[in-house]
Amino acid sequence: MVIRLILMLLALALAGPLRAETPAPLAPGEARLLILHDHGNPVVAEMVRLTLRGEYDLTVSLESLTFPNSDDYDWMQIDRDRWFQERIGGRMIQIFERDIALFPRQPGDLTIGPLVHDLTNITRSGVREPVSVTSGTTRLAVKSFPADSRPLTARRLVLTDELSAPPGRLEQEDILTRRVTIEALGAMAHHLPPRPDITQPWLISFTLPETRETIPTPGGPVARVVWEWQMRPRTGEPGVLPAIPFAWFDTDSRRVEVVAMKPIPFGFAGFTTASGAGSGTGPALRWQMAGLALLGGAIALVVLLRGRLPALGRGMRALRPGPHAAAMRRAAAAGDLIALRAAAAAHLAWRRNG
């Protein structure tokens, strides 16, 4: 988990906020405060990286700058303030920078600012004098979230679905622990989806408290949620928990993507070996049920995104049997999980590219 998070951050090591191309010279004793951003047309809930940049031909000893709260956006500071010297117009100027991650809550025009930076300047004669520097405003044209689902955007998103034991070969007293973790770079914890309900009539399930956190990093906040369940079937008869899809907007590719909790076939080892041969509830049926769950997940994705994604909504192709259906049936009948996964992946790719 930590290694994956580090790799996500290293992928953005060279990324940075927008800077003024060529700073205009300052008059002696002049000061200005700018609001810079990395782009002006985000979708709802997409991170906009703001850099508050002060250029002060002053000797600053104290300062105070408060970024305002608003019902129109969420925000957080993602790195420490930076103070350094920079040559502008042939003179060394005091520079201040602060990085803010801002997340619009609704579509439409969003105005940020003006902001006021209160400074204490030490004059050449050693006198302390208050100076207030006011910025201009910046505007963002916020677009609607491009899917009929809860807005979730990220530069990288990883879902991990872990099981404590093989769910299709449980012993009578076994309790299966399922742990699902979602990590998103460029999102806040409350943007991540709510915990899904995975109850079934044939399943006994205990839900542990979820954990949510937002970790500020220079590349943007990392949102993390962890769900955990303890489960066992009520009887030995096999059952399948279906796949659960989540749509999210990839801010790098500018496309809606989908991740999913995997389908899980349940069963007791003793039941499937002793009773499966004569009753048709053995391993082959379990993989057939898993294949149906995969298809059910694919149909759920089509329904979830059809209204916003033309590529998923073209014609009635998504409802016609594909060229890989026979391969999935053969793999399910043979209990060949590797072949079933490969056929299911090819089937989904055929649907997606149709």
Rank of each mutant, 00 (worst) to 15 (best):
L115E: 01
V116L: 09
V116T: 08
V116R: 06
V116N: 06
V116M: 06
H117E: 11
H117R: 08
H117C: 13
H117T: 10
D118A: 15
D118L: 07
D118K: 08
D118T: 07
D118G: 09
D118M: 10
L119Q: 04
L119P: 04
L119Y: 02
L119V: 01
L119F: 02
T120K: 09
T120F: 04
T120G: 14
N121K: 02
N121F: 03
N121W: 05
N121M: 08
I122C: 14
I122M: 14
I122T: 10
I122G: 09
R124G: 14
S125W: 01
S125Y: 03
S125A: 15
S125H: 01
S125L: 11
G126K: 02
G126P: 00
V127L: 13
V127D: 14
V127K: 05
V127C: 09
R128H: 12
R128C: 15
R128Q: 10
R128N: 13
R128V: 15
R128P: 06
E129I: 14
P130E: 15
P130Y: 06
V131E: 14
V131M: 11
V131G: 10
V131K: 04
S132C: 11
S132Y: 04
V133L: 09
V133K: 03
V133A: 08
T134W: 02
G136Y: 00
G136A: 11
T137L: 10
T137Y: 04
T137R: 06
T137Q: 12
T137M: 12
T137I: 13
T137D: 12
T138W: 03
T138H: 07
T138F: 03
R139C: 03
L140K: 04
L140R: 03
L140V: 04
L140G: 04
L140A: 08
A141Q: 04
A141W: 00
A141T: 00
V142K: 01
V142I: 07
V142T: 00
V142D: 01
V142S: 03
V142F: 00
K143S: 11
K143L: 14
K143N: 08
K143Q: 13
K143P: 00
S144K: 05
S144F: 01
S144Y: 01
S144I: 06
